[in-house]
Nucleic acid binder design. Sequence first.
DNA 1: GAAAGTCACGAAAACGTTTTCGTGTTAAGA
DNA 2: TCTTAACACGAAAACGTTTTCGTGACTTTC
Lengths: 348, 348
Amino acid sequence: MKRKITLKQIARELDVSISTVSKALRNSAEISEDTKQKIQAFAKLYNYRPNNIALSLKNRRTNTIGIIIPEIVHHFFSKVISGVELVANKRGYNVIIGLSNESFSKEVINMEMLANGSIDGFILSMSKETLKLQDYHHFNETMTQGMPIVMFDRVVSDVKCDKVIVDDFNGAKKAVGKLIENGCKSIALITTKDYVSVGKLRTQGYLEALEEHQMPPKAELILKIDESLDYEAHLEGLEKEIEQLFQSNPKLDGVFAVNEIYALLAMKVARKLGLDVPNDVQVIGFTDGVLSKHATPSLTTVSQHAQHMGEKAAELLIDKLESEFNSADEVFQTVVITTDLVERESTK
Amino acid sequence: MKRKITLKQIARELDVSISTVSKALRNSAEISEDTKQKIQAFAKLYNYRPNNIALSLKNRRTNTIGIIIPEIVHHFFSKVISGVELVANKRGYNVIIGLSNESFSKEVINMEMLANGSIDGFILSMSKETLKLQDYHHFNETMTQGMPIVMFDRVVSDVKCDKVIVDDFNGAKKAVGKLIENGCKSIALITTKDYVSVGKLRTQGYLEALEEHQMPPKAELILKIDESLDYEAHLEGLEKEIEQLFQSNPKLDGVFAVNEIYALLAMKVARKLGLDVPNDVQVIGFTDGVLSKHATPSLTTVSQHAQHMGEKAAELLIDKLESEFNSADEVFQTVVITTDLVERESTK
DNA sequence: GAAAGTCACGAAAACGTTTTCGTGTTAAGA
DNA sequence: TCTTAACACGAAAACGTTTTCGTGACTTTC
């Protein structure tokens, strides 16, 4: 088990100084051709690679970016990571991840852990608990210390930083518009409680689409799910709620759900009640996850281009990191990713 | 934008030496109570936190572990990461990820990038290309330099290191046994080409189960899919192949597939051909992914406990990192995670 | 043959820590 | 009063780099 070789060892071995070795390996004109070749050959032989940690300490930058997300076992988030990793790698950066698990305190701890020199900047999506508590001090403190943050998807206007968001409002509007076009007269919305910003925006899009077509919204058609419960564990309860929605609205012929699971459950309930999708009731979901594609019937969805979001976020962050003038130019961008309606079998 | 405060600044501010500050903050008995309190108060006021990079350089350990996986947008892998992150965090480690994208060269590059001081050890699952090329020099070189590796799921006996694997053989055997118990007489296998070790083992399990029940295997019941094509892009082709399998075996009444997608497609084809699942044909898949749970009918699967694999791998790695005697005790463990059959609606 | 310039290299500082080993001051013991 | 011990602190090295500056040996120039 031989340790990695260092400049010092090469220097001692070849009987020159450390500086000479360093310069030779960086091909400095200061060093004669002879010594350069000798040193480079030796270095190659022993497979010398500069120690990243030492470089980080010297340069005061790690070329690593930190991602903090609520959970990783989630198609949307892993797709975002994938995008971040793609451009990060292309531009010579590593990616380190921290999971908040939707908990405020884990988010704070994770950020503090990484902020002490481990990374150059953050890409993050807030935990539900943080959104609920509206406590953003850790973001602001991080930024005051000169560490840039790019937020995606779950953002909040109280924090001034670069952001990448999905056009939730128009995505929802487009989807509901499609249902109306397709002849739906009674369209239900299955959404989350309002403190989740994206749920709120999608709800507004739903309402706007109705209004535009002179269809008065009805409170009994809107089902707001409390997501503080882990819904994977409460699938039956959820199903019950949705079944009730169907039963108290017998004329229901369209459903817009703010995520895949809700949409799939709606289809399941519909089938159970003897309704055919898409002939009796049409369903559209949000998020281009893997479930939508492989469901039967496959689900029409509003695609949020998660990977593209990740790429954009990484570009924003790295651009900021590499701009010299990060002293006073406090201009923050918000990039809006437009959504697409991916039509599949659950709509006509 | 104030930079993070350092020991040196505190020392200058309080007119003591750097050593004194360091010792005071670590509560050394060498320093008088008075000075300790003064320094600690000052440090707390300015929210001092030691710089991780400097610590890493000094201690020659980063308390960070690297994960290299083929892709992250995959329920199994993200679940594993989730497990790794859980115990890593609990034990004071960070997690940094590299994606090989199933490519040999990206795997090599990523590992080299991280091996130069950025991390203390690897947890990884090999890319398909690496498995095909059978070129393992990068693993061996990494280990020679004193950096431990724990492999999971896709492993190979040529590399001597700690491993965490799924009991693919018995999992498959159990599944096929279940189908036989349930009365299936003609059971198809949908698997991958043999170079993917897990595919091979699951195939052997299938054969063993048949043999144990005195059912001769038939070549026409075994469909080997070439996974070098990205199957997400070749779903139709895949479906065709499976349809052919059904048509050339009209008495088919059971299907064992080595992953979710194949199993779902089998169900889809069955439905298309007018066969009821599970009454006419029963289906079992491998991997407890999200698709199985939400499919209709929901899919009976062999659960591999991905999260548990990740936890185990992390424990193995960290234990090795923290054992003092990592000099000569070249004992490598292979932990086998037993599978469970999760029965759902696709079997009787 | 002396002044000036070029060449090739080394010494040392710096990044932010921790830790070992002094060292000066004071108090206790003889 | 002198020695010794305890106490409280500082200097410096070390981790592995890069880079600035200095310097000795040679070569060129008049």
